[in-house]
Design a protein around this nucleic acid. Structure first.
Lengths: 154, 154
DNA sequence: GACAAGTTATTGCATACGCAACTAATATGT
DNA sequence: ACATATTAGTTGCGTATGCAATAACTTGTC
């Protein structure tokens, strides 16, 4: 009797299973490529870029650690360490929240803003080859719509 | 003079930047949720599930380490350790390749096959809520098509 | 106003992963 | 044929991250 096998009639090729597999793979390849390119051109890790972007988009110009953790889909513990590193590099600053002494506001610094501008400029170039050359504007709109639905609210 | 700022006219809201951000976020939330559910119901980490799935889909019933690394989008070093763990659990087996003595074939074991069947069954239930409830069959087909284009060949 | 229960952030610990260096085997070019 | 280049896999090392426990604070209830 052999110790291995590759039979099995289970739906390993099921359309939905394939779809999420494809989503995971596409994300992995794209984030790997874009992350390497961003690191190469700007010396900025992708997770740092994500943090800076979330902060710039924030209404008041700052977010709490929890909000940032949720926005970047990290644990709060991971976010603490991530912000530690970005803050040590001078790109963001922690500030005490005036209305809740447990909370910490994270804001982007002037230096962080400059870095983000530089990174966005490079990122857009990379996106040209990796995204715009592969999907038309209307396909991108459709994809945005479908991903928004898929993401859900949780 | 303040040390922080949140101004900046750069295209942080650019349609393409938003799209890849959405892709990353959707992937993170979905893989976190599905991974936790799979771990909960089958005690199987998502990366292990991915490996087993890739092996079952492989033509000959086995893949080399390099093929597996590419299929799962990991480094070869990471794949070595990953297979170490899955092999220690008895779900896959390394075999020497008859035609190339550098290469190692990885095959799914009987036990791995059973585990995969169990996991697929559970996974399909989870996909029902997380995917099928959010996208119609035709939307899923469109999404598959767009992601395939976006993934590219690299 | 005091206490219980929930929330916010940080820390210790464990682990998974990538990179670069290395070894072994194979392919290529002259 | 032999030297060189290429490829396959493993290992050492560094690091990023999640989980669970903890401390500080807030909120709701009586």
């Amino acid at each position: 009797m052999t110790t291995t096998a590759h039979t099995g009639a289970c739906p390993s090729g099921d359309e939905r299973v394939m779809l999420v597999g494809l989503l995971f793979e596409t994300n992995a390849r794209l984030s790997r490529a874009l992350g390497a390119e961003l690191e190469e051109s700007c010396d900025l890790p992708l997770p740092w870029f994500d943090v800076l972007l979330q902060l710039r988009r924030a209404d008041e110009g700052h977010l709490t650690m929890s909000q940032l953790a949720d926005a970047t889909v990290h644990s709060t513990g991971g976010t603490t360490r991530l912000i530690d590193r970005i803050e040590a590099a001078g790109l963001v600053a922690r500030q005490s929240c005036p209305t809740d002494r447990r909370a910490v506001h994270v804001a982007i610094t002037v230096q962080g803003n400059e870095k983000l501008n530089e990174a966005l400029e490079a990122h857009l170039v990379h996106l040209e080859c990796r995204v715009a050359d592969r999907l038309t504007k209307s396909e991108r709109a459709t994809l945005t719509e479908l991903l928004t639905k898929l993401k859900g609210d949780d």
